[in-house]
Design a protein around this nucleic acid. Structure first.
Length: 478
DNA sequence: TTTTGAGTTGTTCGA
DNA sequence: GTCGAACAACTCAAA
């Protein structure tokens, strides 16, 4: 009897842990543990809980239809894994390599407990293309820049070819108790805010495959430019499926490699490598989600501005492209990557609010909330993380909007009160002449906010704060 | 050990 | 409208 402990690998295809458990031919059980009390754990955000419900339902159905079962338990994984192993007499427990610090701590404890009972915890690479401990610089160091990391992994062997999904799963005669999924209350009820999310996403392996198919049929071939236009379906939208492991990155990688090579496809592969790089960084820097990778930036004089943070969260900043992005996030649980950079730069630079406040909001509202990608990306935008720091890189939301949403379709979709403005003013309603505002039924300050910060002043304030911090943190000359 | 070339996604200014 | 330089210095990774 063998157990497969699922975490962020909610699939049957290309699942080496499941494959290994099936290798002996004996019965196999799936197990998922809802552990919300692990020390140091970031509690699941609302959007994540919604997704998890759907994905577990799909995985449980897949197990049942193939002859076995997915057992659901809530509580501390450090107790439950050994306990279920005992109940079922499992000799091996197969699971994925986790990058989150709380899982790594739990895994170490569980491996020890199991070992003393004569059982084995076996970890497999399930959520990344490469194992983080295998990628080092020539001198054995840890990469701190994307480009050398990407060069190194591209120079190495390709990720292994994906494994097929098992057609049958031999189940045991007696299955242990499983809690009803509904009893976990993962779905919102009062109020049910998930309507826009339901309309946008299909959690589970089938939904993941459908997204990949759609992306490969069209958008990937124009990915270089198309990925920057938030009004267009130019991105893969695979991020939540990849985060939850409903499809493996190796599956996506090889599906792309099977297409005729092109610069566009290569750009997309770079994004997959970025995802791996974030996981790599979290593996080697456990404090990535909580502390500036460059300690000097801990001294940045962030502003405590609860009202401005709230305005940003709810898409009421008065900057159309920022508000459109934040409302897309709120409505659909996802935001286009180009716009993520714009809103993150606006929060950390123009408003000079701590990147961790933005990181936590994203964590709670994104269906693809991922500790590694979220933390690494916020630090990248805030200029506190990897990558030499051209901290003067401050996105101008006005020119970004005009450049990447030239017709304003994206803004109109998510900020409908501005829909009547002509493209010329859609990104800067404050600059529109009174008759045009009147014709569009807009009263600034009433139907749509005035900008909560002057863009030029905010930029200047951020540059000064960063410059002072860098100078102060620099070692004194000898 | 020292040197060298370079670093995801930007903005502004002036020619 | 377009182009290149400046932004300001640092750190990384390999030679």
């Amino acid at each position: 009897m063998k157990l497969v402990w699922f975490r962020q690998d909610l699939r049957l295809a290309d699942h080496p842990a499941l494959h290994a458990a099936l290798a002996g031919g004996g019965p196999v059980l799936g197990l998922y543990v809802l552990d919300e009390a692990a020390p140091g754990r970031w509690p699941l955000g609302g959007a994540s809980r919604w997704w998890l419900h759907g994905s577990l339902a799909a995985l449980a159905a897949a197990f049942t239809s193939r002859g076995s079962q997915l057992v659901l338990r809530s509580g501390r994984a450090t107790d439950i894994i050994p306990q279920v192993a005992e109940e079922t007499g499992a000799s091996e427990i197969h699971t994925g390599v986790a990058h989150e610090p709380w899982w790594r701590d739990a895994d170490a404890a569980i491996a020890k407990t199991l070992e003393s009972a004569g059982r084995r915890l076996v970890r497999h690479r399930l959520s990344t293309l490469f194992e983080p401990w295998k990628i080092t610089t020539k001198t054995g160091g840890i990469y701190g820049m994307y480009t050398p990391f990407a060069r190194a992994v591209r120079a190495g062997p390709e990720p292994a070819q994906p494994l097929p999904a098992p057609k049958t799963l031999p189940g045991p005669d007696h299955t242990p108790h499983s809690e009803p999924l509904e009893s976990w209350n993962l779905l919102p009820t009062h109020p049910d805010w998930a309507g826009g999310i339901r309309a946008t996403w299909q959690p589970g392996e089938a939904g993941a495959r459908a997204r990949l198919k759609t992306f490969l049929a069209r958008a990937v071939h124009a990915y270089d430019a198309g990925r920057n236009l938030p009004a267009e379906p130019g991105t893969s939208m695979l991020s939540p499926h990849l985060h939850w492991g409903e499809i493996s990155p190796a599956t996506v990688w090889h599906a792309c490699r099977a297409l005729p090579a092109s610069a566009a496809i290569d750009t997309y592969l770079s994004e997959l490598i970025w995802r791996d790089f974030s996981a790599y960084l979290l593996w080697h820097h456990r404090t990535l989600p909580d502390q500036a990778l460059r300690p000097a930036f801990e001294a940045l004089p962030y502003r405590r501005a609860a009202r401005e943070l709230a305005a940003w969260q709810r898409g009421r900043t008065g900057i159309p492209i920022v508000d459109a992005g934040m409302r897309q996030l709120w409505e659909t649980g996802w935001m286009h990557n180009r716009v993520r950079m714009i809103v993150a730069s606006f929060l950390t630079k123009h408003l000079l609010i701590d990147w961790r406040d933005g990181e936590r909001w994203f964590w709670d509202t994104l269906v693809d909330a991922d500790l590694a990608s979220n933390g690494a990306s916020w630090q990248w935008v805030a200029g506190t993380g990897i990558d030499a720091q051209p901290f003067f890189r401050v996105f101008n939301p006005l020119s970004q909007g005009e450049k990447f949403d030239p017709d304003g379709h994206y803004v109109r979709r998510f900020v409908p009160e501005l829909a009547g403005l002509p493209a010329r003013f859609i990104h800067a309603p404050w600059a529109a002449p009174a008759p045009i505002l009147a014709a569009a039924n807009i009263t600034l300050g009433r139907t749509y906010p005035n900008p909560i910060v002057d863009l030029a002043e905010g930029r200047a304030r951020a540059l000064a704060a960063y410059r002072d911090t860098v100078r102060q943190g620099a070692p004194e000359a000898a």
